[in-house]
Nucleic acid binder design. Sequence first.
DNA 1: AACCAGGACGTGA
DNA 2: TCACGTCATGGT
Length: 254
Amino acid sequence: MGKIKKDGVGKLNLTAEEMNGLYKRLYSYYGPQGWWPLRSKRIAYGAGFDDTIGFNTSGYHPGIVYKPVKDDIFEIAAGAVLTQNTNWKNAAAAIDNLIKNDLLNTRKILESDIEELALIIKTSGYYNQKAIKLKNVAELIESKNGSAVSRQELLAVWGIGPETADSIMLYAYHRPFFVIDAFTRRILSRYTGEGFIQKAGYEILRTCIEGVIPADINKWQEMHALFVIHAKKFCTTKPECGACPLFRACKKIK
DNA sequence: AACCAGGACGTGA
DNA sequence: TCACGTCATGGT
């Protein structure tokens, strides 16, 4: 067995109270985000949607009815892949280009020429790798013939790591897996003052967070989206602590 | 002009 | 397990 993984868990002192306070502060400041930023939502929200960062910046739009369609699942999976280590704006441009070429569904992706596909998603960076990844996810989704994919199946796909898998599970399939990204780590480590959060392994941190936030799919979706928007607005690499809505509660660890 | 952006994978130690 | 190199565009 070797090392005791509990060493890692033991150093994480994140509490449900802290998490709840953080959620309430972010939610009251930014409002519901209604993620995932599907293009149908981006269009529906119109001017209220900041497509450079993938957020509805003008508050909730209760009058707008979002109608899910079959290809949404692949759009989310594709977006999760295309935004790997890349800003959303570049990924969104790639998605728009896929739409322009009528390629945003599993069958068309599988039929597409991989070198042409790579050029179509060029703006997202790593486009040769991502072209392969898109085909791989499309293949998995297509093979399930409409039934939901599992996290394990996603992780078995070349190009789908834990964060991408969890994004797909949480936002496309509405399953309870909390998404851990660099922003989540940065905000939580600063806010709680626990430097160890930056070093904790993915699964350790994920299960820890899942244990301190109420098991509510919508809340998990919102929490992750709130982490991302806050990391872009204030908790950047060089944070804007002066105007930050979390200033008073934050432990401010760099 | 370095640095960052909603990572994942292969390799060597 | 873990640190490090690779993949790559586009904005600040």
